[in-house]
Each structure stands twice: as C-alpha cells, then as structure tokens.
Write a protein that binds this DNA or RNA. Structure first.
Ligand code: MN
Ligand code: MN
Ligand code: ZN
Ligand code: ZN
Lengths: 160, 160
DNA sequence: TATTAATCAATAATGATTATAAATCAATAA
DNA sequence: TTATTGATTTATAATCATTATTGATTAATA
C-alpha cells in the first residue's frame, strides 16, 4: 500500500537487479505489496494460486529468495515456516504465539548502530526485534473459552 | 558462572520440575552452566561427548527440550541450527553473520510490557532482540584478507 | 528466425528436529 | 536380594520445510 511496498517499485527494483519480470513473479509481487501480513512461503503459494493457478511452490521459493537477495524482502527465520517481512522501515514485530499473527509496532530501536560501532565495535547490518505473547483477539478467546490447551511458543499455530 | 546459571541451581530446578537428574543431564547442565556461548544442539552434543562419550544426540535434544519447558533455557529459532540461550536476564544478542558468534549486550528493551499491554493490548510473554552484523574479529579479517566471498545472513557460518 | 540465456516446474536431495520402540536404569517394595 | 514399575537412554526411522537439480519452456536480442 505504501510507496515503499508498491508493486511497481518492486518490479522496477527487480528489473534493476537484472531479473526478468515474469507473470508469476508479478503475481507474487502484487500479493506481497498488497498484504499487510507476514506470510510464510506456503501462505504466499496458497494465496497467489487463487489468481495464478499454475504457480508452483518451487517458483515461490525461488522468487522469495530473489526478492530477499535484492533487498526487497526480509526473512524472519523460525524453526518451522519462515515468515517474510514486507515492511522494511524500522519497527518491532509483535508475534502472537497462539494464532501466529504478526503485528507491526513502530518504535525506535533500543540502541543505534553508531553506538554499537563506537562502544562495542560491532558493525550492524540488520536487526530483528520481536515480542512474543498474545494478541488482543487471543487474549479474549482464552478468557472466554478458558482454553485447556497449553500455549507455548513452540506449539503449532491454530488456523485462524 | 553466575548464580542464575549455576549447575547446582539448574539441577535443583530440574528436580523441582519432577525430572530425574541423570548423569547425562548433569553433564549437559554442567556444560551449559559453564559456557558463555549460545550453542546449537550439535555443539552441545560435540562438547559434552568429550567428557561423556556415550551420550546420544537424542538425549541432548530431549534434555534441551526439558530445560526449555522448565524455563531454564531459551531457544533462538533459526532456519538451520537453533541456538540455545543460557542468559535469562534481559539483554540484546549481537549476532555475527560471518562466524556465528553471539555476544550479549546488556541494554534496556525498547518498550515495556506494561506499555504494550496498556496502549496496544498485546500481552508480552517473551521477547527476542537481535542485531546482525560483523563482530570485531570478523571486521578485522575482512579488512585484512579482503574476502571476496559475499557475506549474507543466510550463508553457512565458517568454522571458527 | 536463430541464438542464447533465463526461467519454470516437477522431482529429488538435504538436514535439523522429532517420533518410535526396544534396551537400560533407578527407585521402591516384597 | 530380587522383582516390579516406570522413567530414561539410545539407535533408528520419520518428518517436513527448504534447497538443488534437471529437462522443457520461454524471453531477450540481433
Ligand atoms: Mn513487521
Ligand atoms: Mn544472549
Ligand atoms: Zn493471536
Ligand atoms: Zn564474527
């Protein structure tokens, strides 16, 4: 929706990086530009297939990998189902351990790259800031339905 | 080394959680309490086997899982090779994308759990704060040896 | 159109983690 | 001491997201 994530801009950046814009890639880009979520590769596959039925999962992985290499996308690595970050502006992700939803929270990073370089000697290239817990919806659900199931970070998310 | 990570305290906590303290578990606990690093399961296996040769990898995974469930250890999930966090006090991890080393940095978290609960309605249960980049050693190596190899977050770490 | 490189998609391979099941161990009672 | 019981360990197989491979197809360029 924003300029930074517009499909047109991503298409141009892809071409600038020397890649061709195929119909499959355009469809994936359009989905990524439109979504406000942090989808997994499988989610991208399932969603884009609704408008582009012939798409293969391998192409999804291939395209996502290209986008990451080109700096248009970030990966949040998890043990199962990596998630893809389309919002490249500095922010914190609030990750619900019950439903898997990831919500952006605009907030300053705790320490500046300059400080880390000067005081600790660490050269910052990237970051990942996450809080885990329960989103408003899931808090309500638990309060009401008094879920007997244990909610752990390692647990498989339920389908929304 | 600290009181929080002392082997004795971890042994007591394991027993309190209803688990037996076997020699294998004691050996793993001793290693975890002594190390200041953020080892992978394989690293724990390789290290502890030097003092306990019969140890199996399955037992390592089993024990690490028990420790996580008991709150004595945290997992940092990555696409390949999860890492285990023994320092349970709030801090930020500085992760070198070249050698894989993880260095603790004591610093306040960017936003308090209270603020998130009040203003955003998100109930914080855990967190993960990471900077990725180059540790001092690897900056030096790159400057000197002018590494032609690209350094990406997704790349396999070289062995130290 | 011919040439060439890039891409697609089906399939196989990879590899960390988890599940399974038989063997072993430890604690307790008879 | 010996038996019983259940937890634990171990070796092994299974799982499954991701990556690599490969032959066929497509696009770019002249
Ligand atoms: Mn985000
Ligand atoms: Mn740490
Ligand atoms: Zn939720
Ligand atoms: Zn390093």
């Amino acid at each position: 929706m924003t300029a930074a994530r517009s499909a047109k801009r991503m298409e141009a950046a892809l071409r600038a990086a020397g890649y061709r814009l195929t119909p499959q890639r355009a469809a994936i880009l359009a989905y990524l530009a439109a979504t406000g979520s942090h989808p997994s590769a499988r989610q991208v596959y399932d969603e884009v297939r609704q408008t582009y039925p012939g798409l293969s999962l391998a192409t999804v992985y291939n395209t996502l990998g290209i986008l990451v290499k080109s700096g248009l996308l970030k990966v949040l690595e998890f043990e199962l189902d990596n998630r893809y970050e389309t919002n490249l502006t500095p922010h914190i992700n609030l990750i619900c351990t019950r439903c898997g939803k990831i919500q952006d929270l605009v907030a300053p990073l705790p320490i500046s790259a300059e400080h880390l370089a000067d005081k600790v000697g660490f050269q910052v290239l990237d970051y990942r800031m996450e809080y885990y817990g329960l989103c408003p919806d899931c808090q309500g659900r638990i309060k009401n339905r008094q879920s007997a199931t244990k909610i752990n970070k390692g647990e498989q998310y339920e389908q929304s």
